[in-house]
Amino acid sequence: MVGDTIFGLRQRRTFKKMVGSARTRLYRMAYAWTHDPYLADDMVQQTLCKALNNQRQLRDMAAADAWLFRILANCLKDHYRAKREVLLGDDQVRVEYVTPETQTQEQQLVDSVRLAVSRLPLAQCQVITLVDLEGFTYAKVAETLEIPVGTVMSRLCRGRAALRNTLLDAKSQLPTEQAGTVTRIRQIRENNG
């Protein structure tokens, strides 16, 4: 009656193990998408709660990764929608990464990459980070974000082109230090391109 799921005992254990081990990866991804540790943590909390509540939806443990990260992406989408901070226009700016005041040279490099990533449209950021941080195949990214593989490839192209121009262009400069509190979301729009 109570708490019985449709999973067998082995699947239940595998699911629990999977949820426990995914937390760090989910947080890393959520941070890469938001650059806000508190928001990232919130998103992961919501994701794992939803995963626990809806574990019956997961029929194939092999698809668990894509399923979990899909939940994460949807949680973030719902969060932005709820904030209703959507303005007209083609530009999409999320929370900009704030560089700390004191930086080592290595930290400067990390900060410049994070700033560049934070300036990408969310759609491009998600594709790039799923491929580069999690090693997802294009097909898995497509499954996770529920978009065609062709869209994955085109977003990857645009995103990496933007990063290349910012980070590897000889004329580009490292970002100046930004003290103070995090710049809140100014414009968000779902970018399909």
Binding site: A40, L109, V113, V117, T129, R160, L163, L167, L168
Partner: peptide, 20 residues
């Protein structure tokens, strides 16, 4: 360049700050 970019992105998120 492409490979370097990929490694830069990976490197930038090896250690991420946790919320206090």
């Amino acid at each position: 360049q492409q490979r370097k970019l990929k490694e830069l992105v990976k490197h930038a998120y090896l250690d991420v700050p946790a919320p206090m």
